[in-house]
Design a protein around this nucleic acid. Structure first.
Length: 217
DNA sequence: CGTTTTTGACCGGCGC
DNA sequence: GCGCCGGTCAAAAACG
């Protein structure tokens, strides 16, 4: 079967600015593009452009459920999954519930204290592509149809060695124009296509994290 | 030729 | 205990 690979998401009109961690995806040809399962049409070179319509519907952790958006990383490394900088436009209870359920299972699976994981779910407007290209390189390792959705759920793992970040992607059952992406874990490396650096404002002491695409990469 | 995708099987948790 | 369900594995195929 011929699969379209390395196609990129093209999203509808922008509503919300994307978090810095994912806002700048370089259109580097020939590599490191997030693999795509459903997408098959040519897409914009910049999947996000400057922004995309995005719903961050919940940020979950094993410690106490919903947590506020992760603080910006005041350094250049250990870039977290795309942090929700914007308030949720809409809560998607089913998907969040499913994720909570999984969190419980994961915690119960091992003995001892529940492991700390960072879980974030996004809901992104995407008419024709399933995969949210966030600058990391993902390897698909599973696909499963889920009970309450006509759409299959796809499982991805960060293909960088030693990085155990996972994400699952499924189309919103209530509104097929949206794609729900759930991240689990924190990358222990920099995005392959992106350099992040931080500068500190002398006056306020605030850090500004910027993403720049690496020249020639 | 190395990497990624595909897909059915397998496994563990949970509810009944 | 059993069946359902979601998540992962792994071998083969496909792709660049």
């Amino acid at each position: 079967m011929l699969m379209a690979r390395s196609s990129r998401s093209s999203f509808a009109a922008a509503d919300v600015l994307l978090p810095a961690a994912m806002a700048y995806r370089q259109p580097c040809s020939g590599g490191s593009a997030t693999s795509s399962y459903f997408g098959s049409r040519p897409a914009a070179p910049f999947p996000f452009g400057t922004a995309a319509q995005l719903d961050v519907f919940e940020c979950l952790s094993d410690e106490g459920g919903a947590v506020p958006a992760p603080a910006a990383v005041p350094g250049a490394f250990a870039t977290p999954p795309p942090p929700p900088l914007m308030p949720a436009e809409r809560i998607v209870p089913d998907a969040a519930a499913g994720y909570n359920s999984h969190a419980r299972s994961a915690a119960a699976a091992g003995e001892g204290p529940p492991r700390r994981t960072d879980r974030i779910a996004f809901r992104v407007r995407s008419d024709d592509d399933e995969v949210l290209d966030d600058g990391y390189k993902w390897r698909k390792y599973g696909k499963k149809s889920v009970k309450n959705s006509p759409n299959p759920r796809n499982y991805y793992r960060c293909s960088t060695e030693g990085c155990n970040v996972k994400k699952r992607v499924e189309r919103d059952k209530d509104d097929p124009r949206y794609v729900v992406t759930m991240y689990e874990g924190v990358h222990n490396h920099v995005s392959p296509g992106t350099i992040y650096y931080a500068t500190q404002d002398a006056a306020s002491g605030r850090f500004f994290v910027a993403g720049m695409h690496q020249p020639g990469h």
